[in-house]
Amino acid sequence: MSKIASKTPNDSYLASNLTEVGHIPVLPSEVQALLQPKDGDVLVDLTAGRGGHAFALAEAAGPGATLVLFDLDEQNLTFATDRVLSLGVKVIPVHANFATAASKMAELGLRADCVLADLGFASNQMDNPDRGLSFRGNGPLDMRLNPESGTTAADIIRTTNETDLADLIYHLGEEPYSRRIAQKIVQERAKEPILTTVRLAQIVREAYGARARTSRLHPATRTFMALRIAVNDELSALDALLADVETGGRKVDEGGWLNHGARIAVISFHSLEDRRVKQSFVALEKNGLAKRLTRKPARASEEEIASNTRSRPAKLRAVTLLPEDN
């Protein structure tokens, strides 16, 4: 459910380091330059996380801005809301998938001037073994962004037949050894349930065999990515968002969820996401609905990568909407 929150500024509340905030946003300067938030704008952060981007956008826009924050992780959404509220702006938290952004904005009676979707995960999620998103610490094989509902990675591992599991790992993880990995998983689950991240990572490494020693990535990287995407239905959500951006562009003069001239930016972290964003934004421009602000994606500088290694794969693309008959 959505609600409007209000709070007076409290500078002492602002988190000042990674330990307290739990996440460093990627490409912050590039996001600011492309979205150009202004006082009075309606700013929509579709993946609020720990509020880093939202805080910076609100601070740049000024006290007349309205922030609409989406996130599936209720704890992170509460943290981000409180963090942005310390600036004295209006904040509307929405505990929902960003695939519902257009309908939620219509319910709120708001039109967006700036939209940001950072498709990465908050570091506090990745670094918490209990979330099961990483094989670097032992935890339950969960991977849900919303830990209160939905299918877990353990459920998928337990119930999916070998062929479908291999296809999932191949198509969502782009894993060349998906057949070998799926076969090994099915063999091992017949002996005992696969319930933890470390156990699954060990099974994948065993499936790699001698190749594990020469692999540039940890052998389990692509399998974990595939399961995470499947658990959270990430690509369907992105497809729905991009379709809503196109619809918003076509209805920009009819009171849709996007204002004329709205700026939309998406940060992706792997090729399955970036390919979709690129194709969608190219089509928007070709159809006269938008102008691309990035011909090639903005990437993190060497300085940013040195201070935040998780920014290395990030790709930022942005468009600004035009009238349909432009």
Rank of each mutant, 00 (worst) to 15 (best):
I169M: 11
I92Q: 11
A166I: 06
L168E: 09
L133T: 00
S123E: 05
A154M: 14
K90W: 00
L200E: 02
E148M: 12
L108M: 09
N161Y: 03
E162Q: 07
A117E: 00
E188T: 07
L145C: 06
K90M: 04
L141A: 03
G120W: 00
E174A: 12
R179F: 04
S123M: 05
T152I: 04
H171W: 06
S134Y: 02
T100H: 12
R189M: 03
Q202C: 00
Q202I: 07
P193C: 13
F121R: 12
R144G: 03
P147I: 10
R158L: 04
G139T: 10
A101M: 12
T100W: 00
E188H: 10
D130H: 10
A190K: 13
P147F: 04
E174P: 14
T163Y: 14
L165R: 13
L165Y: 15
P147G: 02
E162W: 03
K184L: 12
A117Y: 00
R136Y: 07
R144F: 09
I157Y: 12
T196V: 00
N97F: 00
A166N: 12
D167H: 15
N138F: 15
A96P: 12
V186I: 15
L141F: 09
T151R: 08
R199E: 03
G137M: 13
G109D: 10
K184F: 10
